[in-house]
């Protein structure tokens, strides 16, 4: 399984693998927002938590359809399904690889983008913490969506339609944590809820995704 993670990470980092694309997308979103709402610092400070979270979410979405599609096309997914590793483990490994190549860079780079949006002082810590807690859930939920749509020709658009509503709770608690943190309020409740969602999705969704993959491989 560790090999599988390493293989996926290596494939993603290699040229054309899409690594950094999510990050670039995140950057563009953060740059476009001030053009849309105007350069006033106060306004940006107010909306920064929400924008940063929505941007991270969309950046995650961007690379989801590649998660299983390539292995599906060249048949290695069939091999993985018959491999001694359970398919649930394969899904978990794929989600982990996706998180390492998309979620983790977002977590690391987010404070920089927070700077662009004039995020207020105490918000930075909570931005990093909430993204670190929340993005794994985004990757696992995305893995489920990708598993559902893997057999489809034009699955990308459908994938977003399926996955985005599932992102709602994560987004709400994540952005709420940053907002409260930035305003100096207690962040305990949203962070606990966020961690709860992540733990829950990590525990349950690999099974659902593996079930969907088995149906698609039938």
């Amino acid at each position: 399984m560790i090999r599988l993670v390493l293989r996926d990470v290596r494939l993603a980092v290699r040229a054309g693998g899409g690594f950094g694309l999510g990050l670039a997308f995140f950057l563009i979103v953060t740059v476009l927002v001030p053009f849309g709402v105007g350069p006033e610092g106060a306004v940006l400070t107010r909306i920064a938590p929400g924008i940063l979270w929505v941007g991270a979410l969309l950046a995650c979405l961007l690379s989801l359809d590649r998660m299983f599609a390539l292995d599906w096309e060249d048949g290695s997914l069939d091999l993985l399904a018959t491999a001694p590793v359970p398919l649930e483990g394969v899904v978990a490994a794929k989600a982990l690889a996706h998180w390492l190549t998309t979620g983790l860079p977002l977590v690391v780079a987010a404070p920089l983008f927070g700077l662009l949006l004039n995020l207020s002082g105490p918000g930075y810590v909570w931005l990093v913490v909430s993204l670190a807690l929340g993005t794994p859930a985004l990757s696992v939920i995305g893995a489920f969506g990708a598993a559902l749509t893997v057999g489809l020709k034009r699955g990308g658009l459908l994938l977003s339609l399926l996955v985005l509503p599932l992102y709602v709770p994560t987004l709400i608690f994540g952005a709420e944590a940053v907002r409260r943190g930035a305003e100096g309020l207690s962040v305990e409740t949203p962070l606990l809820m966020l961690a709860g969602i992540t733990a829950g999705t990590l525990a349950v969704l690999p099974f659902a995704a593996a079930a969907a993959l088995r149906v698609n491989l039938r």
């Binding site: 509503p165 709602v168 709770p169 709400i172 608690f173 709420e176 409740t189 949203p190 809820m193 969602i197």
Partner: peptide
Amino acid sequence: LSRYAVNF
């Protein structure tokens, strides 16, 4: 889950 999140 969304229902509760939205309430919150």
